[in-house]
Design a protein around this nucleic acid. Sequence first.
DNA 1: TATATATATGAGCATGTGTTCATGTATTGA
DNA 2: TCAATACATGAACACATGCTCATATATATA
Lengths: 111, 111
Amino acid sequence: MVDERKREQVFTEDGQHLDEETLFVVSQIFKALSDPTRIRILNLLCTGEHSVNAIAETLNLSQSSVSHQLRFLKNLRLVKYRREGRTLYYSEDDDHVMNLLKQAIEHALHH
Amino acid sequence: MVDERKREQVFTEDGQHLDEETLFVVSQIFKALSDPTRIRILNLLCTGEHSVNAIAETLNLSQSSVSHQLRFLKNLRLVKYRREGRTLYYSEDDDHVMNLLKQAIEHALHH
DNA sequence: TATATATATGAGCATGTGTTCATGTATTGA
DNA sequence: TCAATACATGAACACATGCTCATATATATA
C-alpha cells in the first residue's frame, strides 16, 4: 500500500513539481525527436554538416520536406547553418539533445 | 566544404544507419515523452506507485484521460500495474526511458 | 443478488502534424 | 539583366492525437 497524501510541491531529485514552462520545454524537446524524418536528419547531422539537398538525396526525401523539418529544428535551436554561396550547410546545435537521441538509438539497437 | 559522397551503411558509433524498426522504436519512445500529460504522469510515478484515481486527483486530470494515457504507456511497457482489490497501482517499468525523461527535465530546469 | 467502487473502453470531436504542390526569394554566373 | 541553382514558404490535404462523454467491466460488500 502506498502513501496517497498529496505530495507537497517541494523540489526533490525526482518527481519534482513541474511548472508550466518546464513542462512545455520538455515536451517540445521530445516532440522534436518523435518523428522518424527528424530523427533521420539529426542522425545524419551526427556525421557532420550537410547541405539541404545532400540531406534530401541521402535520406531520399523531398527538398521541401527537409526544408520544413529543418525550420522546425532550427526554431528549437537543435540545428544551425552556415551559408556558402547558394548552399546552406546545416549542423547540430544542441549537444545535450543529440545525446538524448544517441542514448535512445543505442537502447533501441541493443534490444 | 564537406564530403558529400553518399555514406555507406556501415555501423559507426554515431550517425549509423537506422533500419525501419529501430527508427520506429526510437520515435515511439520519444512520442510517449512528448505529451505534457504523460510527462506529468511519469514524473509522478518517479515517486512510487499510485492508483489511477490518485494520479487523476493529484494531477487534476479526469479518470478517463489518465486511464487512456496509462494504456498508452502500458502498451510501450513504460509502466506496469499490480492489483489490490478494486484498485490498480501503476508504477514505472523502464529505467532507461525514465532516465531520458529525468535528463530532459534537469536540462530544462537549469536553463 | 444488488449496489457501490475502481478502472477500462469506444465514439465523437477539435486540434495538431507531416507531406506534397506550387511558387517565392536569394545568390551566382553568363 | 537573364537564366540557373539552392533553398524557403504557404496552402491544402490526409491522418494522428488527446480530450470528453457515456457506458462497460471487474471486484468487493451488504
